[in-house]
Amino acid sequence: MTKSSLKNCTGLHVVAQTPFRADGALDLDSIDTLSAFYYGHGARGLTVLGVSGEQGKLTPDECIATAARFIAAANGHRIIVGVSSPGLAQLVTVTHQVMAEGADAVMICPPRGTQTDDDLMRYFDEVFACIGDTPTVLQDFPVHSGVKMSPTLIRRLVEAFPQIGVIKEEDLPSITKITRLREELGTSVRILTGNNGLYLPQELARGADGPMAGFSFPEMLSGVDDLMRNGDREGAHDLFDRYLPLLRYEAQGEWGIAIRKEVMRQRGAMECAALRAPGPVLTALDRAEIRSMIDRMGLEFKFDNKSAA
């Protein structure tokens, strides 16, 4: 396979949460309900084991098991697996395993230490020498990786490595970076956006092909994308604005992921809202604040009375 397998990678690709049990063990059973939740709210595919999917807290075997369960539940939807790692050996091993399980592509963010353009070209030369023609999403997320990639360098990477079919653009300001990337790349690759969806209408207006983000109400992300795609910019902004208080509230790093998982637990997407340690644990005050916010937003969603895990 080459990047041609990613040429139709448009629309919402949710960055999936990884469900755990209260004791920190993987909850593979909840992957089935979680997948159905995402697809029922407009996801065309999932990106599993991303940053907000707590990939860094899983062993390689757990990464493979998690990806395999999402693949089994895909029901024809695209599955992209995050395989970024400080070490090339783990990246290569996990890539081969998840592709053998049936993943459609992998996502790679360059590791810290690859600072110059020459460093980055050498790094990806080594990567693709090992993983061959695996379809790849290139993640541009310098806040997380510490690695800056200019639009000119990204064009060089895309030209040198046709396996790269999608850029996940998260370099702020993302809207101007998307404009520059379209100038450099035209429509030769797809551009999906992250950053929790905080700038989604503007990013789509600049030429992004859809969101690759996590949010406890993914129907907003897919809805905004559909409205923009159909030329209804006012409707897209109206829908986005309705959810903005909670979207902003979730955009608080790992604590925001805890908020997101709790809301999704309450929506029936997963059994337990726990993050794997080390990670934040919500208090009763935190949960009351979430309930108050969602009530004020007038969303059609009622919290249950279960204690949060």
Rank of each mutant, 00 (worst) to 15 (best):
M1F: 07
S5H: 11
N8M: 05
C9S: 15
G11E: 05
L12I: 12
H13I: 13
A25E: 01
L26R: 08
D29V: 02
A36Q: 14
H41I: 02
R44G: 15
R44M: 01
G45I: 12
S52F: 12
Q55R: 13
K57Q: 09
L58F: 04
D61W: 06
C63K: 14
C63I: 04
I64R: 02
I64T: 03
A65W: 01
A68R: 11
R69P: 11
I71Y: 12
A72Q: 10
G76Q: 13
G76K: 14
V83T: 14
H96F: 03
E101T: 10
A103Y: 01
R112D: 05
Y123K: 08
F128G: 01
A129C: 08
I131G: 05
D133F: 03
T134I: 05
D140I: 12
V143T: 13
S145D: 07
S150W: 02
L153V: 10
L157K: 11
E159F: 01
E159Q: 13
I167E: 01
S174K: 08
T176R: 08
R182D: 07
L185A: 11
V189M: 10
T193R: 05
G197E: 08
Y199V: 12
Y199D: 15
L200M: 09
P201R: 03
Q202P: 01
G210M: 04
A213M: 08
P218V: 04
G223M: 00
D232L: 06
G235C: 06
D241G: 12
R242I: 04
L244P: 03
R248P: 03
R248A: 13
A258K: 05
I259Q: 03
V263S: 06
Q266S: 09
C272V: 07
L275D: 00
P280S: 14
E289S: 15
R291E: 15
R296Y: 01
L299C: 12
F301A: 02
N305A: 15
